[in-house]
Design a binder for these strands. Structure first.
Lengths: 184, 184
DNA sequence: ATCGTGTTTGAGTATTCACTCTAATTTGAT
DNA sequence: ATCAAATTAGAGTGAATACTCAAACACGAT
């Protein structure tokens, strides 16, 4: 993959894969469907990717990266910043958010690669939230701040999950309530 | 299906289906796998069920029913009762809880039957939680109590979701924290 | 004991899946 | 313009899928 044509084809395939996962989950994401939507034939797909799983993993990596804001400023942002960034991710990048949530539930079974990646990401996220909580409430024990961070992160995922089912669900309102609950 | 043998076979098939969905998701739940685990041949399966989807739907219906405590005492239980019942369901009936959570995301796509069922059940659940909240905090507006109930129910789902990924995750602790957040 | 009906058998069907292969075409540095 | 390498075309592979069917068998009311 060194020519322009190859790079364009790769982008088209990844776009198609992302949209298909968001629309119909891993189950509905077949090579045939991806190729049809990308306007490409299977031969081209396998010229650029070793397997279907490789393409899926690339998209999942994109989704996980997109769920975290400004990785450079790690440790310098407020809890409100973190929550708002997640709300923006869920409401503004619907496709990636659906991939993220969908993988967290169904895609991790029997696929250690995916499961490990999701769990590692979750842990990093909890740690980041914990730091922000400790900055806001310096008196808390580490155990307590960790517990609050875990409750907040998993609850936010639950709210995001419901938005996948009901697009009218107001994520921002519930995120605000959870934010308040975590700091009082 | 009128003889005892048929009823026994039906029960064996549903048990196998439930366990397989819990272990390996919808994707891994094939007719062959279900039949092998149930000690039955495909012909017997299709003598009792019209399709794979029918068997899956039956299991999902069981899971949804099991998520609600004492349907007869509707409206008479405290918020704490409701939360504790959900924790018991998630921690004690892992199989069904996994089916419920998994279906809510991955299974509902492209299957209006399932999607509608899940959303209707969610609405009933929110309404039940709202009533309990209003009894605990009589001063709240309906809009406010509804918002609190929605936050609580979706957050509990998020906590339960994470337990699917990490069996060591302490659901009870986080459920308690969410319960407190909903009533203060 | 008989007989209609429910149940099981187990091979068989059509389809779809991820993936391969070879030949033809396109690319871009020279 | 040339040519090696990158890319594409598109039919084809074997395995797995959901599902079917006719024949054998088991049940239980009579």
């Amino acid at each position: 993959m060194r020519y322009r044509a190859g790079l364009q084809t790769q982008a088209k395939i990844l776009d198609a894969t992302r949209k298909l996962i968001a629309e119909s989950g891993l189950e509905g994401t077949t090579i045939k469907a991806v190729c049809e939507r990308a306007g490409v034939l299977p031969g081209s797909f396998y010229n650029l990717f070793d397997s279907k799983e490789q393409a899926v993993l690339t998209v999942v990596r994109q989704a996980i990266d997109a769920a975290d804001p400004d990785p450079e400023q790690l440790g310098n942002e407020s809890l409100k910043d973190l929550v708002e960034a997640y709300v923006r991710f869920v409401t503004g990048q619907g496709d990636l958010a659906r991939v993220y949530i969908g993988i967290a539930v169904s895609g991790s079974r029997g696929k250690p690669e995916l499961r490990g990646r999701v769990l590692r990401h979750h842990q990093a996220r909890v740690s980041r939230f914990r730091q922000a909580i400790e900055k806001e409430r310096p008196g808390l024990s580490e155990q307590d701040s960790t517990r609050r961070a875990e409750t907040l992160v998993t609850s936010l995922n639950g709210v995001a999950l419901h938005r996948v089912l009901d697009p009218k669900f107001d994520v921002a309102v519930h995120a605000r309530a959870l934010l308040e609950g975590a700091t009082t």
